[in-house]
Simulated scan of single mutants.
Amino acid sequence: MKPYYWESQHGNFGDDLNLWLWDFLLQGFREVHPETLLVGVGTVLSKALLEGTGHKLVLGSGFGYGSLPDMSDANEWDIRCVRGPLTAKKVGVDESLGIVDPAVMVADMPEYRNIPKTVKKSFVPHWESAVAGLWGEVCSTVGINYIDPRGDAKEVIADIARSELIIAESMHGAILADAFRVPWVAVSTSPSINSFKWNDWASTLGVTYRPRQIPVSTRAEAMLKGTRFWGVGFDAGQAPTANTSAMNDDGEVMVREQEPRVTGLRSAAKQMLAAPSTLALWQASRAEPQLSSDRALAERKERFLNVLDGVRRDYL
């Protein structure tokens, strides 16, 4: 058996944790049933991703993009549980199988127990925001720790665990924060953030997805997400009109290295243009956070562990 996950070319810790989480939860799973794909953490129940990939064991995956594959053949699909009731309804299985996102189980791993709190507030953006935005600089301006979701998954998760508050545009930033009992505030920079998957998970733990809106931090980010930047609207994925070989990832003309003064001015100009983002993020850091109840989290984890017991009996 091998784990399936969506691999971002930029890296995304919420997907990358599949590479080692299942070795903790289902020890020895890789040595059995080579014909089976373990479909776990991620919004991966998609026709484009999974159709024609052989026998699949679904453990906590979610729907959210594109269309579902035909999952009616029990010889091809063994659906033990999904992320939440919204996915269960879409798939056509009983709502009771919409248990929780398996990423909550990371908090039970020995290496993450008793991590000391050394950071007051951290921001975990969506990976698209990290690719095209100026969020590291924005966070530095307001004294918030920046956690890049494209980093090594284990290090990203440890940074979440050692924080006292998480501001999350990344859904798995909120999921891991909640699992570590770290209060969190949801934010969103554009309509491209998928509310279906957030609500799917949130409904399992009795929390509410009500993101605070934060403006994008750069023109490139607006172009990627199809939103507005300083009153100018862009279509999603819109390319710059000038020669891209002469542009940096903000869609602006690059400055030669031997012109440090101009580079410094350009950096200052970018930070000035990101001022609305900076203010909104600072305000989000002072908002009332959420946290599921200990009872709700424990109950969902217990149900998921019961599912794993069944998988061990049938597969291991």
Rank of each mutant, 00 (worst) to 15 (best):
A298H: 14
D159Q: 15
L86D: 04
K154M: 11
G60F: 05
M254S: 12
F234T: 08
A280D: 06
A186F: 15
G84Q: 08
E76Y: 08
A296V: 02
L305W: 13
W184N: 14
T118G: 04
Y112T: 10
Q27H: 03
L291A: 12
L305I: 11
G233C: 02
F13S: 06
W135P: 03
Q238T: 09
E164A: 15
D178F: 07
L37R: 11
E221F: 01
N248H: 03
E51W: 12
P116G: 09
A179P: 02
L17V: 15
N75P: 11
I167C: 10
E257L: 09
E51I: 11
G52E: 07
Q271N: 13
F123T: 03
P240H: 03
D23K: 05
A107W: 09
E164C: 14
I79R: 01
Q271F: 01
G226T: 07
Y315I: 00
N12F: 04
R162K: 15
K47F: 06
P183K: 14
S122E: 11
D249T: 03
R113D: 08
M254F: 02
V307Y: 00
T189L: 11
S46D: 12
L273F: 07
R300H: 07
K197M: 03
G151Y: 13
A179G: 02
W6R: 14
T263H: 08
G143H: 05
